[in-house]
Design a protein around this nucleic acid. Structure first.
Lengths: 168, 168
DNA sequence: CATATTTATTTTAAGTATAAAGTATCAATG
DNA sequence: CATTGATACTTTATACTTAAAATAAATATG
């Protein structure tokens, strides 16, 4: 029963369905953008107010925190989805302010190795703690039991988008 | 049965639970950011390549497209979640390129009214069409039947974050 | 009506973003 | 060993981003 109500399992979709799907996709994208903008803006504001620090700088420290022996500079753009040209002045500033060091490799003089300093690590830990509690504060109203479910959905979305970008 | 396994219905949470929730929240935030960055980057790239246009400019046109009689300039920062100072040069460029007009109000000489031109509207329609199909292409791998569900979850998340930001 | 406050917008300063061109170094080939 | 190509990084040009100060016009208050 209920055979007639089933939509065809494969393409081609009717114009109406296609339009509805377009709209649903646009809604999803706008919501995604709104959530991210909202949270990102608030986190950035607090970083600035509390620590006079920016998120890109924090992101770099976060990567280095897990690498006691430092990281090849070229690894950072890959991990942070940031362009290399963009990274140069950020790293410059972090070095200048004493959070990290940048030393040329002996084996390959093109390569630079960046490494967190002791003070850098200390500052990072302090900021990371605040970051965590800010996030907890912002997300407190969302049911804890559904955090993981939403995360998996987004994981799937990310995978789908990545696949779509790889193909053509 | 299974009484002992139930977690207490209200706070205070145990340290372990609190830590687990922190991690889940952080995971969600990182995933959210990754999805948005991925899609946004790709859309921006295509806008640039196909139309030599940026997304903020497109966003302004999108707002004006629905307002045949134009919009008070001050409305745009509110709708687009963009600072006013940021908008000025964007509007400047759009006026310069003939997509919109900016005319001072007769009633209040502080106020400017921005309005799409005929060519602006034409250009916008063309770009909006591409935008829609790019998005469809990127999201094609995500099951259509779950678009709305994910959108509602994000809606709820957005509401929760907004509430958290309003309170303190 | 003069002064004070608010509101709309612009300007400025510092920083972030990409793309694309440039420089330096390394590796591979003839 | 000179040339060619690839790699690591920096520089440049252009644009976006916010916060905060500045300007200018309207409104409110004494």
């Amino acid at each position: 029963m209920a055979v007639a109500k089933e939509s065809p399992p494969v393409s081609p979709k009717s114009g109406v369905d296609q339009e509805a799907e377009y709209r649903a996709q646009t809604r999803l994208w706008l919501r995604l953008l709104a959530c991210t903008t909202l949270i990102e803006g608030e986190l950035r504001r607090r970083f600035r107010e509390e620590f006079d620090f920016t998120m890109p700088r924090f992101d770099v420290l976060a990567q280095l925190d897990r690498e006691p022996s430092g990281l090849v500079l070229g690894e950072l753009p890959k991990r942070l989805m940031v362009s290399a040209g963009n990274l140069t002045p950020i790293v410059d500033r972090l070095v200048e302010d004493g959070y990290i060091t940048r030393t040329p490799s002996n084996l390959d003089r093109r390569v630079q190795i960046v490494c967190m300093t002791v003070e850098g690590r200390k500052a990072f830990r302090r900021m990371a703690k605040s970051h965590g509690s800010w996030l907890a504060e912002l997300l407190a109203g969302f049911p804890a039991g559904r955090l993981d479910g939403l995360t998996s959905e987004l994981d799937e979305l990310k995978g789908a988008v990545r696949d779509a970008m790889r193909k053509p």
